[in-house]
Nucleic acid binder design. Structure first.
Length: 843
RNA sequence: GCGGUAGUGGCGGAAUCGGCAGACGCGCUAGAUUCAGGUUCUAGUCUGUGCAAGCAGGUGGAGGUUCAAGUCCUCUCUACCGCACCA
């Protein structure tokens, strides 16, 4: 038998309940302990439920949580809790990006040990993180400096080595004199070290590289597979990869048995070459000038370039300059003699370090040619450009037809490119190629606090990888720190003195460690099976959990971390460890937390400490404010008064709920609602409209700010309804329950406490996310705007399903409209059902 | 220089598909509560004008498309971010 609980109409004496204070400190501690004791957020694979992997970028354990972390983890926690309440089996882990320079610098400065310093910081930050009330499965915690973890970072290295993707070469690398180590290209910003901002030098060193360039095309193409990533990040990655199509060909050198290879994207302009340029570092330069009168000025020029830092060398502002080498090359297309120059504007690390110069059609070459009086020959002619190069005011890079180009005259630019390449390939001069700006990933670091590179150098066997069964290569703890430009491991005899795994003879270990970005390129895989001892992760666990459904972190990692993680994921896919090709299905890049318009920093003295905020107002307030103040992808301006506002709101909720416990405690919600009075109906409408809005704001838009404002509106509506003399307690109960559930992902503690006080079943966080009742959203009447020529003149109430004709009739019958349109010609009437009627008049 | 994002009250922001600009919060004003301050509650708060109902103007600026533009198009200014001699 079905039982209908008929809506009750009861006269209520309001707020007679003895109100308990909102003691956030006690409440937050109580529930954090409860969740932990009851293993609330620990998960295992469960094939009966859909999985969801929510991940925030794990922090470097600097010692203290800052507001950026709070924002990051508050956002992630809302997503994780929301998905859990929607029936997903949610993996939400946390760990530590625990290797890196600051630990070592702190060790040098304070005489502490990096391991000790790091562990202390992790403990401190973990405690801080726990006071935030985040729903992490701490059983899966990892720290990259843990031998159980870096054993598998070394495993990654060995697998890459095995597949020819890790190699050692001597290269001119970025050297940070302050950090006393080399840096990857990605870690050099404006010619300065990304970390310490010291000016970066070039140094010729033997270093280990990962061959990320083998994956350049896939890294580029597969961005298409990521509709859930911000376009901004994808664009940045595309630019970084920097694919350009063109051709490569070599030129003979007059009087020398050597050839110079150049890359160009404009093979259609090869007949316009009037000189060529080598980078000052180009290996052939010395041979070209040997014994010539030009040798001295050239050497002088090269020395001068060497002493300029990266910034001064490569800046667009830098004036182009160069010197003639005295040598000539031969244009393979027409056998012309081409003078060879060296100049600052050609870079050794892009293309081949040498260019063909076509001043008529390249602005840089044009500027240079004008400066040094080198002829300019037009080979692409448009209707508006001169044929005589000396008349050009600037290089012409546009479309046109080939001229002065022998058999190729008359070809269009695109046609010419294809034909020249075909000709070169036929004659064996050159070939069509694709060039990338992306360089191989330099992973050697001359520092101590990192994962040792698992390689030994044997006088007999050469470079020998450590067998996987012998991992980890342990980082010795007894080390002396002296910033010398060499790895401190160079002074630890017990470490570097070893035996060769192949021949058993005496051998020397590699003493460089790996870039920490290697460690962070696969941690999300490790979270799937963090206790696994044989492999970095088990296939079964990774097949179940990967890919990360929602990744959240700062945009500063748009290139570095995200590119490296994508690369390693593709490699793991290739060696059949993973079945996904991309690690992060959806990416949310959060904005910065600002104070007084600029990023919080110690030097500016505008840092707000999360610890203090949590102590003063509680985690729920901190979370609420930070989520309410701005949409997550935009920068957020910190406001102490805004925090007060969030705190006040929670007090309002507290009073509202505690004030109604007595009357609502024993009320059960009916399965059907009938004959509600207008006020009750309006509240029920608001309740369900709020469910609808909050759900879509979280799910579809990540607009937590508008979700929270909708919850605030519901709170206001409940309060207003409370002023009614006669209240429908079922509707009120539904509204209050809904308010708490909708607020629970944002403010997990206060809602849990109030839920318990209301006598709610088990934990609020184990409740299902509510679904809205479409019937409750049906209104008898809705407001229709009446406009005359686009200006609002009146508003009327009409049934929501009123037809266009009915609305038109209602509008024309409206007294105010009648008055204002009297004697006017009605040119047109636009009716938008459920919205407005616009009467267009012509005077 | 190239690419991107943004510009809306005193402030943070809202307006999701071209349809009532300013939701929600902060701040401010007035009143109530209070010994007082704070808290809390009530009312107000884009600008001009008016006692008021109202009327007019208003989303960085200038044009345009449209019955209707914060939203679309063209030009332009400003701020921030990314790339920057990439051959």
């Amino acid at each position: 038998m079905r039982v209908f609980v008929i809506s009750m109409l009861i006269i209520v004496t309001r707020r007679t309940f003895m109100e308990r204070k909102y003691d956030f400190e006690a409440i937050e501690a109580k529930w954090q302990a409860y969740w932990e004791e009851n293993h609330f957020y620990e998960v295992t694979e469960d094939t009966t439920r859909p999985k969801y992997y929510a991940l925030e970028m794990f922090p470097y354990p600097s010692g203290n949580l800052h507001m950026g972390h709070v924002r990051n983890y508050a956002i992630g926690d809302v997503v994780a809790r929301f998905k859990t309440m929607n029936g997903y089996n949610v993996l939400h882990p946390m760990g530590w990006d625990a290797f890196g320079l600051p630990a070592e610098n702190a060790a040098i400065k304070h005489g502490s040990h990096p391991a000790k310093w790091t562990t202390a910081n992790i403990n401190n930050m973990k405690a801080q993180l726990k006071t935030l009330g985040t729903s992490y499965d701490w059983n899966r915690e990892v720290a990259t400096c843990d031998p159980d973890y870096y054993k598998f970072t070394q495993w990654m290295f060995l697998k890459l080595y095995e597949h020819g993707l890790a190699y050692k070469k001597s290269a001119a690398v970025n050297w940070c004199p302050s950090c006393q180590t080399v840096l990857a290209n990605e870690q050099v910003v404006d010619g300065a070290c990304e970390r310490c901002e010291a000016s970066v030098d070039k140094k010729q060193l033997e270093q280990w590289f990962f061959k990320i360039t083998d994956y350049a095309q896939r890294l580029l193409d597969d961005l298409e597979m990521l509709p859930g990533w911000p376009d901004k990040v994808k664009t940045m990655q595309r630019n970084w990869i920097g694919r350009s199509e063109g051709c490569q060909f070599s030129l003979a050198i007059e009087g020398l048995d050597e050839r110079i290879t150049v890359f160009t994207t404009r093979p259609d302009t090869v007949f316009g070459i009037t000189y060529m340029v080598l980078a000052p570092e180009h290996p052939l330069v010395a041979k070209l000038v040997a014994g010539r009168p030009e040798e001295e000025p050239v050497t002088e020029f090269i020395n001068r370039m060497k002493h300029l830092n990266e910034m001064a060398r490569t800046s667009t502002e830098a004036v182009k300059e160069g010197v003639f080498t005295g040598a000539y090359a031969i244009n393979p297309m027409n056998d012309e003699r081409i003078p060879i120059w060296i100049a600052n504007y050609v870079l050794m690390d892009y293309g081949t370090g040498a260019i063909m110069a076509v001043p008529a059609h390249d602005q840089r070459d044009f500027d240079f040619a004008r400066k040094y009086d080198i002829p300019i020959r037009v080979v692409i002619k448009s209707e508006d450009t001169p044929l005589d190069g000396s008349q050009l005011v600037e290089a012409y890079a546009g479309d046109g037809l080939m001229v002065n180009s022998g058999d190729f005259d008359g070809c269009s630019v695109t046609e010419g490119q294809a034909r020249v390449i075909a000709y070169m390939e036929e004659k064996g001069i050159g070939e069509g190629t694709i060039n990338f700006r992306l360089r191989d990933w330099l992973i050697s670091r001359q520092r101590y606090w990192g994962a040792p590179i698992p390689i030994v150098y044997c006088p007999q066997c050469g470079t020998v990888p450590i067998p996987i069964k012998d991992l980890p290569v342990l980082l010795p703890l007894e080390v002396e720190f002296r910033p010398s430009g060499e790895s401190p491991l160079n002074y630890v005899q017990e470490f570097y003195q070893t035996t060769c795994p192949v021949c058993g003879g005496e051998a020397r270990r590699e003493t460089d460690t790996m870039d920490t970005f290697v460690c962070s390129s696969w941690y999300f895989d490790r979270f799937c099976s963090p206790q696994e001892t044989e492999l970095p992760f088990t296939r079964e666990a990774a097949d179940y959990w990967m890919a990360v459904d929602q990744y959240i972190g700062g945009v500063e990692h748009a290139i570095l971390h995200l590119m490296y993680a994508r690369f390693l994921t593709k490699f793991l896919y290739d060696i059949k460890m993973l079945k996904v090709q991309e690690p992060f299905t959806n990416l949310l890049t959060q904005g910065m937390v600002l104070k007084d318009g600029s990023k919080m920093s110690k030097s500016k003295g505008n840092v707000v400490s999360p610890e203090e905020i949590i102590q003063t107002y509680g985690a729920d307030t901190a979370r609420l404010f930070i989520l309410f103040a701005s949409p997550p992808d935009r920068d957020l301006e910190w406001s102490d008064q805004g925090v007060e506002g969030a705190y006040r709101f929670l007090h309002r909720v507290w009073r509202l709920v505690t004030g109604s416990i007595e009357t609502l405690q024993d009320v059960s919600r009916p399965t059907e609602y009938k004959e509600l009075d207008p006020a009750a109906k309006a509240l029920r409408f608001k309740t369900h409209a709020t469910i609808k809005k909050v759900s879509s704001d979280i799910e579809e838009r990540f607009n937590f700010n508008t979700a929270i404002s909708a919850i605030m509106e519901l709170t206001n509506a409940i309060n207003t309804y409370g002023d009614q003399q006669e209240q429908d307690l079922c509707v009120l109960k539904e509204a209050v329950d809904t308010l708490l559930i909708l607020l629970s992902p944002f403010c997990p503690h206060i809602t849990e406490e109030l839920w318990e006080m209301m006598g709610g079943a088990n934990s609020i966080h184990l409740q299902s996310w509510p679904t809205y009742d479409p019937a409750a959203l049906v209104q008898d009447e809705i407001e229709i705007v009446l406009q005359i020529s686009g200006k609002v003149r009146d508003r009327i109430m009409a049934p929501p399903d009123a037809s266009e004709d009915e609305l038109r009739a209602l509008a024309l019958d409206n007294p105010k409209i009648k008055e204002l349109t009297k004697g006017q010609n009605i040119a047109k009437i636009i009716v938008v059902p459920r919205k407005l009627v616009n009467i267009v008049v012509k005077p």
